[in-house]
Design a protein around this nucleic acid. Structure first.
Length: 265
DNA sequence: CTGAGATCCTGGGGGC
DNA sequence: TGCCCCCAGGATCTCA
């Protein structure tokens, strides 16, 4: 999302939204009683930011478009007029470009948020912000019985860690994904904190992970999928210790880890 | 409040 | 080769 937002910012900031086409109603959500297309038409885009896994398009009126891409959503800027697969929301912008919101699985959402609406109140701390200190992380883990991996994916605690990055960070820190969050000793918690920052930063440098459908605002794929250590790698041997990479399911999510150096204890 | 599980979708992969 | 089944996964909902 960070990579997408950086590309979008460059391409759509300052542009006016001349037209709106909603091809699938549920993908474009407006406040109760309001029509998405009517409200958004004529707006001007001030800038583009990110909160957790949401791309946030700031509008001149003070409202925002909070976009959740889930797994297969795309935000792409095109200059031509041809069709784009699974384009369910299209914003026609000044200068003849189109901002397209496409999603084959229809899980993504583009939500118009009112000026004063606290839409992100349920989102936790940004893992790359200064507020996410090792001590704060340790305090957050305290008393939690949930598997540490499930904790990392809980957007109400930390906002922005997805399945790939949770698996990779746990591998990096040498921590078993099923270990109860509150049972991590301080050194392990510090290692995990450091690994989360390192993995996320590295992924951003490499412009994201194109496992399935992901592309940035230019339609380019990321590069992090080429440097994965565990995600999707069951049956291979660990690049650090030679142990076997296995796949289990934690809270309904595929989870990859090294049997040898990520022990439950 | 916490945690667990179902749900939404479709393309693609595996099995036969 | 072709067909069917099942699975991936983030956020949100319900339920315990």
């Amino acid at each position: 999302v960070e990579t997408i937002v950086r590309g979008l910012r460059r391409k759509v900031a300052g542009k006016r939204i001349d037209s709106v086409r909603v091809g699938l109603k549920k993908m474009a959500v407006a406040p109760p009683g309001l029509d998405f297309a009517t409200e958004v038409t004529g707006e001007r885009i001030e800038g583009v930011g990110r909160r957790g896994k949401y791309a946030v398009i700031r509008l001149k009126s003070g409202r925002r478009l909070a976009v959740s891409l889930r797994m297969t959503g795309r935000l792409v800027v095109l200059s031509g007029s041809g069709p784009y697969p699974y384009a369910y929301v299209e914003l026609g912008l000044s200068g003849g470009v189109r901002l397209i919101f496409a999603d084959v699985r229809q899980f993504g959402r583009m939500r118009l948020v009112d000026r004063r609406e606290g839409w992100d109140a349920d989102l936790g701390v940004e893992p790359l912000s200064g507020a996410f200190t090792p001590d704060r992380f340790i305090a957050m883990l305290s008393g939690r019985t949930t598997p540490v991996k499930a904790f990392l994916l809980d957007q109400r605690r930390i906002a922005g860690i997805g399945n790939i990055y949770a698996c990779e960070a746990l591998w990096e820190a040498g921590i078993h994904p099923a270990k109860p969050a509150g049972s991590l000793l301080k050194p392990a918690a510090r290692r995990l904190h450091g690994a989360l920052g390192a993995v996320l930063r590295r992924a951003i440098v490499l412009r994201g992970s194109s496992i399935d459908d992901y592309v940035d605002a230019d339609g380019s794929k990321g590069g992090f999928q080429n440097v994965l250590s565990v995600y999707g790698k069951e049956g291979t041997s660990c690049s650090r210790c030679g142990g076997e990479i296995v796949r289990t399911v934690i809270r309904g999510r595929g989870t990859w880890w090294c049997r040898k150096h990520q022990k439950l204890e």
